[in-house]
Design a protein around this nucleic acid. Structure first.
Lengths: 336, 336
DNA sequence: TTGTACGCGTTATCAT
DNA sequence: ATGATAACGCGTACAA
């Protein structure tokens, strides 16, 4: 294995090890002659400094940690996940940071993930995704001054840096869009009722309605589980109402596709008889008939904000906002 | 910041730093009394060993590196990418390994990626994806005894450990399936003609044909670029042939969907008039009409094999096969 | 059984 | 301008 260290280069270039280090760190004080000798030896033997030693010495590893509170297997087909990593890689890379990814597997490893990554100083800072917002470990890390940024909503106090989608605004925007197209009876198909996501977006939906002087009608609000089946069933029930909605807002594209299916079975034309909007702007949207209008959560922007906030934190720069909110966009296709 | 080190715990527990280290490493020689004192202090102050120091000392970091020869932005919507990471995470995690992901951004950083990750000893081993097979750096790493595994095909010599899909076999399997359904004129839509992938699968297609006593007909072979457009155009041309094919094998689902579109425009029923098979078994398959039969490259198995091979390499265990080949599966839906 | 002392490969602070 | 030397936090050979 490589026994190439600075002392070795020093021996070859007939200088002290300290001089090698200086050359490598571009100390202007060093004599040009020696500098060349060192550089030549470095080049000839292909010396590269040992990152482990550098980390120990410098007290940082130039590595960001991403921890997901999910089983790794559930990540396999999640476009959110790949977009997230891609963007962190891109923007972290610009600042010279590497990325270490971990997923909490067993329950036990929840603890391990925080300890092993951050407190062991394996990484310089953490991006946490899908944490339980009341996780007491976050408070502990926070106390100890470990840099970390939460993606998602943090409900307890504001001692934590976080980045989140503008869920309220996104739902409001989509609802306003439907209103602007003349719809008066707009239905909402959420995820599980307990989810913050479901609640926030419901709030946005409701406030748009009320701002337009429309009454909020609980009969038009359903809760699914993000599956196509649940979208289908919810829409089917909605469309058999005596006063059926003329538009449906579904919290996920897959549920929206289920709704599309239900509309077809009811012989309702989309968007003429019933307009449908999904969420997440997944690749599927372009492939269904009619192509699905969808609210795009801006994952790259989300990840970028989190990454840059974290790096600012790590490097001790002041951070402008503790809680960044990333606006969503509506991608218009045929279904609404 | 945390000044919690073993010396500190040692002071608190009134033992030597070495004893703390021994307790933590479960040295059976240590007196139960002292052991308890140390453990109590560790617990009370929440001490966790510093991974940077451990790495330097132990000469390994228990970290795997994944390097992709792609711009990070191109990763965002790639299901291959997320499946890959998910599986490495899962199987690496079983052996206590973390994962560090890097994507070669600029051309320059190609070099950097190797050096910075492996030779700096930031990671213990590397999984390389989509490398140019003739990359001279691989040979260098190989010489120096750095553990790494290639995902994809390595053409030069066999000094390198690699894992690859059975591209030849997958195309042969798909072709045989079509033959078994009575098809005699089977067309092939590949990717760019220069790609190893395209060539390997073309070979599998051709050998199945010839094994069945059918003549290979170059008129039935087209080359696309993996876009829906290119699939559409290729299929359109194929279907206007005087002796048009009764089945089409497209090297990617998206191209297959383009072909589906062309068939529709030609008023050909799928699969009755023309059968279509795609590759990669993407989520899209279930959402098109008719649902697309697709050859599934087994990415989890691919990643698992690479990961376990790499860990064996790192830990000095003998590796059974230098070049693992992962078989594909055909997922039957409606289109063929 | 426990403590002392050294080295892992750097960077940085001293002297010279 | 350069070389010796001291950390960084840990594991372990050696001494006691």
């Amino acid at each position: 294995m490589s026994e190439l260290k600075q002392t070795e280069i020093a021996r070859i270039a007939r200088v002290s090890q300290a001089t090698v280090s200086r050359v490598l760190n571009e100390d202007p004080q060093v004599n040009e002659d020696l500098r060349q000798r060192v550089l030549a030896a470095v080049e000839a033997y292909g010396y590269v400094p040992n990152a482990r030693a550098q980390s120990l010495r410098a007290q940082h590893s130039h590595t960001l940690g991403l921890v997901l509170h999910r089983a790794p297997s559930s990540l396999a087909n999640d476009p959110f996940f790949s977009a997230l990593i891609a963007s962190i890689l891109e923007h972290g890379g610009k600042h010279g940071y590497h990325l270490c990814v971990d997923a909490a597997r067993a329950v036990h490893s929840r603890r391990a993930i925080y300890e092993e990554l951050l407190r062991t100083r394996r990484v310089d800072g953490l991006i946490l995704v899908e944490s339980e917002t009341n996780d007491e470990r976050m408070a502990r890390l926070n106390e100890q001054g470990f840099p970390f940024v939460l993606i998602g909503r943090y409900e307890l106090g504001d001692g934590v840096y976080s980045v989140d989608n503008d869920n309220v605004g996104a739902a409001r925007m989509a609802t306003e869009y439907l209103l602007s197209r003349g719809h008066q009876r707009i239905a909402y198909i959420g995820g599980p009722a307990g989810l913050v996501l479901t609640r926030d977006r419901l709030f946005g939906y409701r406030s748009a309605l009320e701002a337009a002087g429309l009454k909020y009608d609980p009969a038009l609000v359903m809760f699914g589980d993000f599956s196509e089946q649940s979208g289908y069933r919810s829409a089917r029930d909605l469309l058999t109402l005596t006063k059926r909605p003329t538009a449906i807002l579904a919290l996920d594209d897959v549920m929206a596709i289920g709704a599309l299916q239900a509309a077809k079975e009811h012989k309702l034309a989309v968007p003429k008889d019933v307009a449908i909007i999904g969420f997440n702007n997944s690749p599927l949207c372009s492939y269904v008939e009619p192509a699905l209008t969808s609210v795009a959560v801006d994952i790259p922007a989300l990840a970028r904000a989190a990454t840059e906030m974290l790096i600012d934190l790590i490097e001790g720069r002041p951070v402008s906002t503790k809680h960044a909110i990333i606006p969503a966009q509506i991608v218009k296709r045929e279904s609404a």
